[in-house]
């Protein structure tokens, strides 16, 4: 019995964005990374095309992490004491992108200064040829001060500045405008809020192809279904032609998974949770895999083993 394959062609397409700039484009990256561009649901290559596979960013901190799981510290070793070495290690671990997360304070509790932020950005840019993302500590004043400095230091490199939120996006967007960067706009797991922030950022004159949206997510077992559905809805809206949702999506499964006990700790948990090492990687891997299935274009990860796992899955999904 001949069955007609139900192909779905969508009128909309996610904008393709370019992260990083090579010397020819005014930067120093050894290659650029393109994200987005799909006109189909994730991996539904019978319906449309996905010119770029979902990308993997590895999150590195500006100093030895204080509250990270010992498993992560063990996996990275001493490089966590030096962001430049860490960035290089991340590149070697198979990242497409390196995300530098700035902290509120430096050694001894002194506030991170604009000069620190510049030096850190420069060090990471020198250590890796990958395009980078730099996220501020998440406090309005500090973010604005540090990210403006970062934006200047990395002028021309097409880095991604984060995080723009509704309560604080104007300064970061202005810094991106002035220095040719992209921004990451984060909203709390809600389609309309995401769309609204995109409109607000675009209203300031930043072209849509320099905005990435971060709909926020949650870990496996801790509310992931909200993020999952919000991303599916955003992507469907984009494919149906809603311009203000046609942006690539970035989510942070690494952060979300590793804050949960399932990944973070090995003791004082039920025996039914099984082997800690495998469970930890599994938790981050499944969180990331599932979010990729709901439309993530960039996943930010923490453990090198997860990177391998997620990469292998993406490769299999993209295989023709």
């Amino acid at each position: 019995m001949p069955v007609e394959i139900p192909v779905e062609q969508w009128p909309g397409r996610v904008i393709e964005e370019t992260l990083g700039a090579t010397p020819a484009e005014g930067g120093t990256r050894s290659r650029v990374v393109k994200v987005g561009g799909e006109n189909t649901l994730p991996f539904m290559l019978t319906d449309g095309e996905m010119p770029n596979p979902p990308r993997i960013a590895i999150e590195i901190l500006d100093q030895r992490p204080k509250d990270w799981s010992p498993l992560l510290l063990e996996a990275w070793g001493d490089v966590v004491d030096d962001p430049a070495k860490w960035a290089k290690a991340a590149e070697e671990a198979g990242a497409d992108l390196v995300l530098l997360q700035l902290s509120l304070t430096r050694d001894g509790g002194k506030p991170t200064t604009a000069a620190d932020a510049k030096a850190l950005t420069r060090a990471v840019l020198q250590a890796t040829g990958l395009p980078i993302l730099v996220f501020g500590p998440g406090q309005v004043d500090a973010d604005n001060e540090l990210l403006v400095a970062v934006a200047e230091e990395a002028a021309g490199e097409r880095i991604v500045l984060g995080i723009c939120e509704e309560k604080n996006y104007r300064t970061i967007v202005a810094a991106a405008l002035a220095n040719g960067h992209l921004v990451n706009g984060r909203t709390a797991m809600d389609v309309n809020l995401a769309k609204q922030l995109n409109i607000l950022i675009a209203d300031m004159g930043l072209p849509l192809d320099r905005i990435i949206m971060d709909p926020t997510t949650a870990s496996l077992g801790y509310g992931i279904e909200y993020g999952y559905s919000v991303m599916e809805r955003l992507r469907l809206a984009a494919l149906q032609g809603d311009k203000m949702t046609q942006l690539p999506m970035l989510v942070t499964p690494g952060f979300e998974a590793w804050r949960q006990k399932e990944a973070k700790v090995g003791e004082g948990v039920p025996a039914s949770w099984g082997d800690w090492r495998q469970r930890a990687v599994l938790w981050e891997t499944l969180t990331a895999t599932n979010l990729i299935l709901s439309g993530a274009d960039i996943v930010v990860l923490r453990h090198p083993e997860t990177v391998k796992r997620v990469r292998a899955f993406i490769d299999r999904m993209m295989a023709k």
């Binding site: 496996l220 077992g221 999952y228 399932e262 025996a271 039914s272 949770w273 099984g274 082997d275 495998q278 469970r279 599994l282 938790w283 891997t285 499944l286 895999t289 599932n290 299935l293 709901s294 796992r309 292998a312 899955f313």
Partner: peptide, 29 residues
């Protein structure tokens, strides 16, 4: 890897999933 595939099947439309491996951490996830 089996967990990744099974997770995909859970999200995308399987009614019965037959696993070949069992580990508590995998079952939990």
């Amino acid at each position: 890897e089996e967990a990744q595939l099974a997770a995909e099947h859970i999200a995308k439309y399987a009614g019965f999933i037959v696993l070949d491996r069992f580990a508590p951490e995998m079952a939990y996830a």
